[in-house]
Design a protein around this nucleic acid. Structure first.
Lengths: 348, 348
DNA sequence: CTAAATAATTGGAACGTTCCAAATTTGTCA
DNA sequence: TGACAAATTTGGAACGTTCCAATTATTTAG
């Protein structure tokens, strides 16, 4: 109707009260009389009032902005899309909205979006850091009292909370499973050795060997890029050995798919002639042929958990850094050679 | 250092100028002297100044909030994740940030998140509407002069811009391709008939038949839920006919996968005994066995285009509703029976 | 019926920015 | 040098909310 937007003052005038009272109603204060409250609410509906959070944030602490930032390194990867959905679920039902940005592993981009989010006054931040992120990148945030939760990839010296999957437990379980199938020469394939995630998964591999009573042989660890191409490369080097492995735990599912490709190129069928286990349980893992045995990490649950932790810290006012490793589950399918034929295919 | 946050006034004091000048610098105005500009910038760096967009928005039109809202109905679906990435790309490089929310096809959720976004003063909105969204749901937005771009699913009577894929052209091309392979009884399987997308794809199917000189037979159109289970159901009904089809264009890839499942349950091999074409080109389409021939819609490009259109409208001040259909491309793989053996598999 | 306690309401001063009109400085030209 | 124009700079008044202290209305207790 009129030019400008509808403000509390318009509502106050229409309801015959003061703007302060309207503000009280807005905040659900128990100080206002039931009668006035409904009068005010009616006026708001009548005039089509829209709350202006920007103005409110000017007076309040950033903890009440009701915005949380979410930064992921690769939204194209369904793992991170699921994670974002998990975050969105809990964040939305707490009345927050999420700023979601994608860095594509670019650290500059990451810096930019985090700066931008700060300008908008986020109450907290959930971030899956781009490769090579330094803990110092989050210094200003924590100095400003904004809670930060790092997910997926842990950040060494940073004084922020983190939620990562139980990498060590995952590969350990994978190795033990392979050992129980009778394998004794089990390889660890793929991944860059200079990352925290690699170290953890490798440590689990070593644990698993020990638990199964097998010895650790350094030559069975073959690193490569954590990609499909890297997997092809790694299995190539593994098969060139004199005493070949008969099974492999891979750094992640992408590597595992590459390993399968490489095996076929050598006329070997994954699952039958060589056992392959991945890590992540990406969406394609269950529909691939053969279906991939892998360690499932439930990204959506991880997102939910991260959001819960962040909200807790936002509400608490100050953030005690807290680290949690989420449980992980070995999903046995066909590529390890242990699966029962083709069960599970639902044909009508 | 000090308690409160650093404001323009602190910067002004430190640089020995007025707050107005600092504001001018912030906006990159050409009115300020080069010397003062750098003095001010130095002070900002020195004191760790963080721009407060909330305060700025209080004075400016919402077009300058630099926030755009993105609402999708299913982020778990990689189609929409890609779309969001496309939006993020152009939006980010224009200095905007995106509020991303997921509705899970819930219309209430959609209403909530849009309301929340309005409170935050978004400059524009990109939305892939949840099923059963009414055009009236966007009335308040457009009344407030906030540009809205609807993507993927068009909204009949709404006075907003929309970007949808060329559904009609896509199915038409699919039918012509099947006809060129010698098929004469081509079925259209899956999808709910009461949606705009269904109508368009069906219209393309009819076009394609006409172009190929084939007649339209109503019984060859079998609708069902647009899901894998729906596909199983649809092919079941199609195969129960006396004069069976030998090929099918499916409503989308999910239906197509279901159709493949259903065929196998009848001891028929998709691609060899029956030609199947999908729509969307979801990520699994190329890795499935057999690889799915489908109509590719490039969700990321669609996201980019939507963002560009939205930004144009935001900058123009007022939004002329504009409708564009993005081009679509038939990707021939194995499931239609036309593919050259197993080319394209890159085995090292 | 009054004093004190309690409940409900309210005006103004913030919050950190932008914008306007006006003031000041600098430059140009005869 | 003086006058005028151009280039820079600058106080305040918004913007729409919340919060505080203060006020007014209503109960309760004695």
């Amino acid at each position: 109707m009129t030019k400008g937007r509808v403000t509390v003052i318009d509502i106050a005038k229409a309801a015959g009260v003061s703007k302060s009272t309207v503000s009280l109603v807005l905040q659900g204060s128990s100080l206002v009389n039931e009668g006035t409250r409904s009068k005010v609410n009616a006026a708001m509906r009548e005039l089509g009032y829209v709350y202006n959070r920007g103005a409110a944030n000017l007076r309040q602490a950033s903890a009440k902005s009701k915005i949380i930032g979410v930064v992921v390194n690769d939204l194209t990867n369904s793992f991170f899309a699921e994670l974002a959905v998990g975050v969105d679920m809990v964040v939305q039902s707490a009345g927050f909205v999420q700023f979601l940005s994608n860095t594509s592993e670019s650290i500059d981009r990451q810096r930019e979006v985090i700066a931008s989010m700060r300008e908008h006054g986020i109450s907290g931040l959930i971030v899956s850091p781009a490769r090579a992120t330094e803990s110092v990148d989050f210094k200003p945030l924590v100095a400003a009292g904004i809670p930060v939760v790092v997910v997926v990839r842990s950040l060494p010296g940073a004084k922020v909370s983190s939620i990562v999957s139980d990498n060590q437990g995952g590969t350990s379980a994978a190795v033990e499973h392979l050992a129980s199938l009778g394998h004794t020469r089990i390889s660890f394939l793929g991944g860059f050795p200079d990352t925290a995630v690699f170290e953890e998964r490798l440590a689990g591999y070593v644990d698993g060997l020990k638990a199964a009573g097998l010895g650790f042989h350094e030559e069975l660890v073959v690193s490569s890029a954590p990609s499909r191409a890297g997997g092809v490369d790694a299995i190539g080097r593994a098969m060139a050995m004199s005493d070949r492995p008969t099974a492999a735990v891979c750094f992640n599912d992408a590597v595992a798919f590459g390993v399968c490709d490489g095996l076929r190129a050598r006329r070997m069928e994954p699952g039958r002639d060589f056992a392959v286990v991945g890590f992540d349980d990406v969406i394609e893992a269950q529909t691939a042929v053969p279906a991939l045995t892998t360690v499932s990490v439930d990204p959506q649950g991880m997102g939910r958990r991260a959001a819960q932790l962040l909200l807790k810290q936002i509400n608490a006012g100050k953030a005690e850094p807290e680290s949690v490793a989420t449980a992980v589950r070995l999903v046995v399918r066909e590529s390890c050679g242990a699966a029962e034929k083709k069960a599970g295919r639902k044909t009508a």
